[in-house]
Design a protein around this nucleic acid. Structure first.
Length: 474
DNA sequence: TGAAATGTTGGGGCG
DNA sequence: ACGCCCCAACATTTC
């Protein structure tokens, strides 16, 4: 029986894993490996992502009977050594789409071809491959709706989920330089790493439990309820999807078969569509993570003065909805989508920071930090992206708070200083009289910060900044 | 997947 | 009864 390497990457699961399925089906004994490759990587994983990865690998390793072999370093060198030492002629993996990984993986394929090693790659992460969707003229879509409706929905239906391989025969090999998961040093000694995971159950089995709970509950009324950060109408699957503990195909078909109203199902599927669109944009515009998609934004007068950045990061801006959201992010490794848009607008438009500053902070703090989604979404918020929110669409954090957290429950959950403040006053606590502030144990400037900026003034400043670039040719 | 400014309409108070 | 004003409530436009 020949041995094949199965290289786990962003597909930390056994079910619906096409390359793993193919390897087993071909009759190979499998040597399952994971490589932490920070040598080829120009976007090293953030702190939260590493913590998640640690636990996800642990879960996967348990499912593999403790036989997962971990390595750290240059993937090309590690694979070469493994193949040479153990006389392995087959490597299987599922594709990744980050520019650095595409570059690295194609170099590995070239090397393998030279060495007479067969490489098999498949698609485990996307419903539609980015190169299979294009306009009539062959160029890439830049607008979501036609991309999704004409490009995706008219194309072949996504692959139906595969079962786990029937026979997973693990090779009886113990490579010399293999490391334990602990030795990858993914978990900081800081207590932060311990605390942020308390809300989460990590790994393939828990991802499925969450999907199934969502299908039975939150999907009904998803279309409207998903806007309310204190409602259970979002799936919170994003970190599981990012690490491939569950596939978009599994989510897609689960929704399609769910008994929820059609508009909710359609809306959920289109959110998976936005994820696809982000990957599509990153594939066709590999500079998306650092360069304005719209060139005219290169001349935008950002204020990169660091003055307010740390107040935003720590949730000390004096705007309760912003502070609740930023603290949710830091404390739980996650932020609901609605407040992501609100805090994004606040950073980029009210504070005039370049979107890259927000991208970087989210990258470090989010469990679901994903190069494609994070870059595409920050550019969307900033107005510089593909099919972006127009720059002049500036969120008012007070209005948004009143609309989407009317009873202030989300605010109170993460901003305990305001827990005694009644809902009618919680969205703009600085309007409380001194006696109200004392009565509710929330003295502004003492118990809770005064607003660091005025939204009306900064809105006008942002519009003026925008008008300075709108004449510039694209 | 906004918000604010501006425009329009229609009911009620009032002389 | 009528015109006038006020001003919600809604619609449209602008950024």
């Amino acid at each position: 029986m020949s041995t094949a390497i199965f290289w786990f990457r962003q597909d930390l699961r056994l079910q619906d894993n096409p390359a793993l399925y193919a390897a087993c089906h071909a009759g190979h004994d499998i040597l399952p490996i994971y490589i932490l490759d920070e040598e080829n990587c120009d976007w090293p994983m953030g702190g939260a992502s590493k913590v998640w990865l640690h636990h996800s690998l642990t879960h996967l390793n348990q499912k593999l009977g403790g036989r997962l072999q971990c390595f750290s370093g240059d993937a090309k060198a590690i694979l070469k050594t493994l193949c040479n030492t153990h006389d392995i002629k087959h490597i299987y993996w599922n594709r990744c789409y980050e520019p650095w990984r595409i570059k690295r993986d194609s170099a590995i394929k070239t090397l393998c071809t030279e060495q007479n090693i067969a490489c098999y790659s498949d698609n485990a992460s996307l419903l539609w491959e980015p190169w299979q969707v294009s306009k009539q003229d062959g160029t890439a879509y830049k607008v979501f709706t036609p991309y999704y409706k004409k490009g995706c929905l008219y194309a072949e239906a996504p692959r139906k989920p595969l079962p786990a391989p029937k026979h997973l025969n693990l090779a009886d090999l113990s490579p010399k330089n293999a490391l334990t998961i602990d030795a990858l040093s993914l978990c900081p000694t800081r207590s932060w790493g311990e605390e942020i995971i308390t809300d989460w159950k990590i790994g393939e089995d828990h991802a499925h439990a969450k999907l199934s709970d969502f299908m039975d509950g939150g999907l009904t009324n998803y279309k409207d309820g998903r806007n309310f950060p204190n409602k259970a109408n979002v799936s919170r699957l994003s970190p599981h999807l990012h690490f491939g503990e569950i596939s978009p195909n599994q989510a897609w078909y689960a929704a399609a078969q769910a008994s929820a109203p059609e508009q909710d199902v359609t809306c959920f599927k289109s959110e998976l569509g936005w994820r696809e669109f982000s990957y599509y944009l990153l594939y066709h515009f590999p500079e998306l993570p650092h360069k304005n998609f719209q060139d005219k934004f290169d001349a935008f007068p950002w204020h990169d003065d660091q003055e307010y950045l740390s107040a935003w990061q720590k949730g000390q801006t004096g705007y309760p909805i912003i502070d609740a959201a930023m603290r949710e992010l830091y404390q739980t490794g996650y932020m609901h989508n609605r407040p992501r848009m609100i805090v994004g607008s606040f950073l980029v438009k009210n504070l005039l920071y370049p979107w890259q500053a927000g991208e970087k902070w989210f990258w470090d703090c989010l469990f679901d930090a994903d190069l494609a989604s994070n870059s595409a979404s920050w550019q969307w918020v900033a107005g510089s992206g593909a099919d972006a929110a127009p720059y002049f669409r500036i969120f008012n954090p007070i209005t948004q708070s009143e609309k989407f957290d009317p009873d202030g429950q989300y605010i109170k959950k993460y901003v305990p200083e305001l827990k005694h403040v009644p809902a009618s006053l919680i969205h703009k606590p600085w309007d409380m009289t001194i006696s109200e502030q004392r009565m509710y144990n929330a003295v502004i400037g003492k118990d809770y910060p005064a607003p660091i900026i005025d939204v009306k003034e900064t809105r006008e400043r942002a519009l003026a900044a925008y008008s300075s670039i709108k004449q510039v040719q694209d």
